[in-house]
Amino acid sequence: DEIHIHFNGVTIEFRGLTEEAKKALEEAIKRGASEEELKELARRLIK
């Protein structure tokens, strides 16, 4: 299970995320999180 985020022309790929983690990332994107914020969020979620 993986998710691809297209962000300002950059694709960020995450693997092994739970549904909750995906929802958290989607919410962050909707509120306009920066690419760095998304990566940091993903790091926290994957652990």
Rank of each mutant, 00 (worst) to 15 (best):
T11Q: 08
V10C: 05
L38H: 00
K22D: 00
H6G: 07
F7K: 03
E26G: 06
L17E: 02
L17W: 06
A21R: 00
H6Q: 11
R44V: 10
L17R: 01
H6L: 08
L41I: 11
V10Q: 11
T11R: 08
A33T: 06
A21P: 00
K23S: 10
E37Q: 05
E13S: 14
H4I: 14
L25C: 01
E13W: 13
A42D: 00
G32I: 01
L41M: 08
T18I: 05
I12H: 07
L38G: 00
L45Y: 11
V10H: 10
H4E: 07
L25I: 10
E37R: 01
G9W: 07
I5T: 04
K39G: 05
T18V: 05
R43F: 13
E35K: 07
E35G: 11
E37N: 02
A21I: 15
E20H: 06
R15G: 09
L38I: 13
I46D: 13
R43E: 15
H6V: 12
I29Y: 15
I12Y: 08
K39C: 09
K30Q: 10
E19Q: 12
I12P: 03
E26K: 10
H4C: 04
A21M: 14
I12E: 05
T11H: 11
K47F: 15
S34R: 04
A24I: 15
A24S: 08
F14H: 04
A42C: 02
R15H: 13
R15F: 11
A33K: 02
S34T: 13
A28V: 03
A21K: 01
K23D: 06
S34G: 07
I12S: 04
E40H: 02
K22E: 03
I5S: 03
E40Y: 02
E36Q: 09
R44Q: 15
I12M: 06
G32K: 01
F14W: 08
K23V: 11
E27G: 07
R43H: 14
E36A: 11
E13R: 12
I46Q: 07
E13D: 07
E40Q: 04
E27H: 09
R15A: 10
F14Y: 08
G32M: 02
G9P: 03
I5H: 04
L45G: 01
F14P: 00
K22V: 13
K23F: 13
L41Y: 03
F14R: 00
K39A: 09
E27P: 00
E20R: 09
I12C: 03
I46Y: 09
E20A: 09
N8Q: 12
E35D: 10
V10N: 10
K30N: 11
T11I: 13
I3E: 05
D1F: 15
A33G: 02
I5K: 03
E36D: 09
L45F: 11
H4K: 12
D1S: 13
F7G: 04
I3G: 05
